[in-house]
Amino acid sequence: MSSKRHSILPSASQSGPKPPVHLSSSLTIADSAVLTGTHQITVHGESVIHPRARLDSHAGRVTIGRRCVVHERATIGSSSSGLASARSSAVLSSARSSMASPGVLSPTAAVAGSGGEAASQSTTAQAVTLGDYVTVEVGAVIEAGGTVVGDGTVVGVGARVGAGAVLGKRDLRHENHCTLTPQSAVPPGDVVPDFTVVYANGMRRTDRRGMVELKNKGLARQIEVLRRLIPSNPAKFA
Protein backbone atom coordinates (compact mmCIF):
# COMPACT_ATOMS: atom_id res chain seq x y z
CA MET A 1 0.00 0.00 0.00
CA SER A 2 2.68 2.43 1.01
CA SER A 3 4.73 1.83 -2.09
CA LYS A 4 1.70 2.65 -4.17
CA ARG A 5 1.19 5.86 -2.31
CA HIS A 6 4.69 7.03 -3.01
CA SER A 7 4.67 6.01 -6.63
CA ILE A 8 4.49 9.58 -7.90
CA LEU A 9 7.94 10.27 -6.55
CA PRO A 10 10.95 9.03 -8.40
CA SER A 11 12.42 6.06 -6.64
CA ALA A 12 15.30 7.01 -4.40
CA SER A 13 17.68 4.52 -5.78
CA GLN A 14 21.00 3.76 -4.18
CA SER A 15 22.85 4.74 -7.31
CA GLY A 16 26.50 5.59 -7.46
CA PRO A 17 29.35 4.49 -5.26
CA LYS A 18 28.97 3.47 -1.65
CA PRO A 19 30.83 5.99 0.50
CA PRO A 20 33.02 5.22 3.50
CA VAL A 21 30.93 6.02 6.54
CA HIS A 22 31.45 6.72 10.18
CA LEU A 23 28.12 6.42 11.94
CA SER A 24 27.56 6.88 15.65
CA SER A 25 25.97 3.96 17.42
CA SER A 26 23.31 6.23 18.91
CA LEU A 27 22.13 7.52 15.58
CA THR A 28 18.83 6.80 13.85
CA ILE A 29 19.04 6.33 10.13
CA ALA A 30 16.16 5.10 8.00
CA ASP A 31 16.59 2.18 5.67
CA SER A 32 15.57 4.27 2.68
CA ALA A 33 17.99 7.12 3.31
CA VAL A 34 20.48 7.57 0.51
CA LEU A 35 24.20 7.79 1.23
CA THR A 36 26.25 8.21 -1.89
CA GLY A 37 29.66 9.52 -2.93
CA THR A 38 33.31 8.76 -2.51
CA HIS A 39 34.37 10.82 0.51
CA GLN A 40 33.81 10.08 4.14
CA ILE A 41 30.33 10.58 5.61
CA THR A 42 30.29 11.11 9.37
CA VAL A 43 27.15 11.34 11.49
CA HIS A 44 27.51 11.97 15.22
CA GLY A 45 25.42 10.83 18.16
CA GLU A 46 21.65 11.00 18.51
CA SER A 47 21.12 12.48 15.07
CA VAL A 48 18.17 11.35 12.96
CA ILE A 49 18.30 10.78 9.21
CA HIS A 50 14.77 10.50 7.82
CA PRO A 51 13.70 8.19 4.99
CA ARG A 52 14.70 9.43 1.55
CA ALA A 53 17.13 11.98 2.94
CA ARG A 54 20.23 12.19 0.79
CA LEU A 55 23.82 12.59 1.93
CA ASP A 56 26.10 13.07 -1.04
CA SER A 57 29.87 13.02 -0.60
CA HIS A 58 30.85 13.11 -4.27
CA ALA A 59 32.39 16.54 -3.91
CA GLY A 60 33.81 16.25 -0.43
CA ARG A 61 33.46 15.05 3.11
CA VAL A 62 30.04 15.28 4.80
CA THR A 63 30.01 15.75 8.57
CA ILE A 64 26.85 15.94 10.65
CA GLY A 65 27.03 16.88 14.33
CA ARG A 66 25.10 15.67 17.35
CA ARG A 67 21.33 15.80 17.67
CA CYS A 68 20.71 16.88 14.11
CA VAL A 69 17.56 16.00 12.19
CA VAL A 70 17.72 15.61 8.42
CA HIS A 71 14.22 15.36 6.99
CA GLU A 72 12.76 13.62 3.95
CA ARG A 73 14.20 14.49 0.55
CA ALA A 74 16.66 16.90 2.06
CA THR A 75 20.01 16.85 0.27
CA ILE A 76 23.26 17.51 2.03
CA GLY A 77 26.29 17.89 -0.20
CA SER A 78 24.68 18.38 -3.58
CA SER A 79 27.01 19.53 -6.32
CA SER A 80 26.89 23.28 -6.59
CA SER A 81 25.78 23.75 -10.15
CA GLY A 82 23.06 26.03 -8.89
CA LEU A 83 20.93 25.14 -11.86
CA ALA A 84 18.23 23.38 -9.96
CA SER A 85 15.68 25.40 -8.12
CA ALA A 86 15.34 24.60 -4.47
CA ARG A 87 11.91 23.09 -4.98
CA SER A 88 12.83 20.37 -7.44
CA SER A 89 16.39 20.02 -6.35
CA ALA A 90 15.91 16.74 -4.56
CA VAL A 91 14.67 15.15 -7.75
CA LEU A 92 17.11 16.92 -9.99
CA SER A 93 20.18 16.32 -7.93
CA SER A 94 19.59 12.60 -7.83
CA ALA A 95 19.24 12.60 -11.60
CA ARG A 96 22.23 14.88 -12.01
CA SER A 97 24.57 12.92 -9.84
CA SER A 98 23.72 9.66 -11.51
CA MET A 99 24.41 11.25 -14.86
CA ALA A 100 27.50 13.16 -13.90
CA SER A 101 29.30 10.61 -11.79
CA PRO A 102 31.00 8.75 -14.63
CA GLY A 103 32.10 11.96 -16.34
CA VAL A 104 32.87 15.08 -14.41
CA LEU A 105 33.27 13.84 -10.92
CA SER A 106 35.18 10.65 -11.46
CA PRO A 107 38.71 12.23 -11.35
CA THR A 108 38.11 13.51 -7.83
CA ALA A 109 36.59 10.22 -6.92
CA ALA A 110 39.62 8.33 -8.17
CA VAL A 111 42.01 10.51 -6.18
CA ALA A 112 39.99 10.21 -3.06
CA GLY A 113 39.68 6.50 -3.46
CA SER A 114 43.39 5.89 -3.96
CA GLY A 115 45.17 8.13 -1.50
CA GLY A 116 43.28 9.45 1.49
CA GLU A 117 45.95 11.87 2.72
CA ALA A 118 46.58 13.46 -0.65
CA ALA A 119 42.94 14.15 -1.18
CA SER A 120 42.27 15.51 2.28
CA GLN A 121 42.80 19.11 1.22
CA SER A 122 40.23 18.99 -1.54
CA THR A 123 38.05 17.09 0.86
CA THR A 124 37.85 19.93 3.33
CA ALA A 125 37.57 22.55 0.60
CA GLN A 126 34.52 20.83 -0.82
CA ALA A 127 33.12 19.56 2.46
CA VAL A 128 29.80 20.13 4.15
CA THR A 129 29.83 20.51 7.92
CA LEU A 130 26.75 20.62 10.12
CA GLY A 131 27.12 21.57 13.79
CA ASP A 132 25.01 20.22 16.65
CA TYR A 133 21.24 20.67 16.90
CA VAL A 134 20.87 21.43 13.21
CA THR A 135 17.52 20.77 11.56
CA VAL A 136 17.40 20.36 7.80
CA GLU A 137 13.75 20.31 6.82
CA VAL A 138 11.95 18.56 3.96
CA GLY A 139 13.44 19.10 0.52
CA ALA A 140 16.09 21.56 1.69
CA VAL A 141 19.43 21.55 -0.10
CA ILE A 142 22.85 22.25 1.31
CA GLU A 143 25.41 22.48 -1.46
CA ALA A 144 28.92 21.15 -1.09
CA GLY A 145 31.96 23.42 -1.21
CA GLY A 146 33.27 24.25 2.24
CA THR A 147 29.76 24.91 3.47
CA VAL A 148 29.29 25.28 7.23
CA VAL A 149 25.96 25.19 8.99
CA GLY A 150 26.42 26.34 12.57
CA ASP A 151 24.94 24.93 15.75
CA GLY A 152 21.20 25.15 16.28
CA THR A 153 20.49 26.31 12.76
CA VAL A 154 17.16 25.48 11.12
CA VAL A 155 17.19 25.15 7.35
CA GLY A 156 13.50 25.42 6.44
CA VAL A 157 11.41 23.42 3.99
CA GLY A 158 12.79 23.71 0.47
CA ALA A 159 15.45 26.22 1.47
CA ARG A 160 18.84 26.26 -0.20
CA VAL A 161 22.28 26.94 1.23
CA GLY A 162 24.73 27.79 -1.53
CA ALA A 163 28.21 26.32 -1.87
CA GLY A 164 30.70 27.69 0.60
CA ALA A 165 28.12 29.62 2.59
CA VAL A 166 28.74 29.86 6.31
CA LEU A 167 25.76 30.09 8.63
CA GLY A 168 26.94 31.40 11.96
CA LYS A 169 30.47 31.95 13.16
CA ARG A 170 33.07 29.65 11.81
CA ASP A 171 34.01 28.30 15.22
CA LEU A 172 31.16 26.00 16.00
CA ARG A 173 30.11 27.03 19.46
CA HIS A 174 26.56 26.90 20.76
CA GLU A 175 26.04 30.38 19.46
CA ASN A 176 24.97 30.17 15.85
CA HIS A 177 21.25 29.48 15.61
CA CYS A 178 20.43 30.88 12.24
CA THR A 179 17.00 30.26 10.75
CA LEU A 180 16.18 29.91 7.08
CA THR A 181 12.44 30.17 6.58
CA PRO A 182 10.84 27.84 4.00
CA GLN A 183 11.93 28.34 0.39
CA SER A 184 14.53 30.94 1.30
CA ALA A 185 18.09 30.84 0.04
CA VAL A 186 21.57 31.82 1.10
CA PRO A 187 23.78 32.58 -1.91
CA PRO A 188 27.05 30.70 -2.39
CA GLY A 189 29.94 31.98 -0.32
CA ASP A 190 27.79 34.22 1.87
CA VAL A 191 28.69 34.50 5.55
CA VAL A 192 25.61 34.89 7.72
CA PRO A 193 26.03 36.21 11.29
CA ASP A 194 24.78 34.28 14.31
CA PHE A 195 21.06 34.38 15.07
CA THR A 196 20.16 35.62 11.62
CA VAL A 197 16.67 34.91 10.31
CA VAL A 198 16.49 34.76 6.52
CA TYR A 199 12.88 35.32 5.48
CA ALA A 200 10.61 36.72 2.79
CA ASN A 201 12.75 36.67 -0.33
CA GLY A 202 16.11 37.34 1.23
CA MET A 203 15.18 39.77 4.03
CA ARG A 204 17.26 39.32 7.13
CA ARG A 205 16.77 40.11 10.76
CA THR A 206 18.21 39.02 14.08
CA ASP A 207 16.52 36.43 16.26
CA ARG A 208 16.30 38.09 19.67
CA ARG A 209 14.05 35.56 21.30
CA GLY A 210 16.76 34.18 23.48
CA MET A 211 15.12 30.78 23.28
CA VAL A 212 18.15 28.70 22.55
CA GLU A 213 17.69 26.35 25.48
CA LEU A 214 13.98 26.01 24.86
CA LYS A 215 14.58 25.27 21.20
CA ASN A 216 17.25 22.69 21.89
CA LYS A 217 15.05 21.02 24.48
CA GLY A 218 12.25 20.85 21.94
CA LEU A 219 14.55 19.28 19.39
CA ALA A 220 15.78 16.74 21.92
CA ARG A 221 12.18 15.83 22.67
CA GLN A 222 11.43 15.55 18.96
CA ILE A 223 14.40 13.23 18.49
CA GLU A 224 13.11 11.05 21.32
CA VAL A 225 9.86 10.57 19.41
CA LEU A 226 11.52 10.08 16.04
CA ARG A 227 13.80 7.37 17.40
CA ARG A 228 10.74 5.36 18.27
CA LEU A 229 9.02 6.05 14.95
CA ILE A 230 11.80 5.50 12.43
CA PRO A 231 13.23 1.98 12.23
CA SER A 232 16.97 2.46 12.15
CA ASN A 233 19.22 0.41 9.92
CA PRO A 234 22.78 1.68 10.18
CA ALA A 235 24.16 -1.71 9.19
CA LYS A 236 22.97 -1.18 5.65
CA PHE A 237 25.36 1.72 5.15
CA ALA A 238 28.37 0.37 6.98
Binding site: T179, R205, R208
Partner: peptide, 9 residues
Protein backbone atom coordinates in the same frame (compact mmCIF):
# COMPACT_ATOMS: atom_id res chain seq x y z
CA UNK B 1 6.80 31.71 14.12
CA UNK B 2 7.90 32.94 10.72
CA UNK B 3 10.37 35.78 11.18
CA UNK B 4 10.88 34.93 14.88
CA UNK B 5 9.98 38.41 16.07
CA UNK B 6 9.01 38.50 19.71
CA UNK B 7 7.40 41.15 21.85
CA UNK B 8 10.34 40.94 24.22
CA UNK B 9 12.25 42.81 21.52
Amino acid sequence: SYCLWTSTE
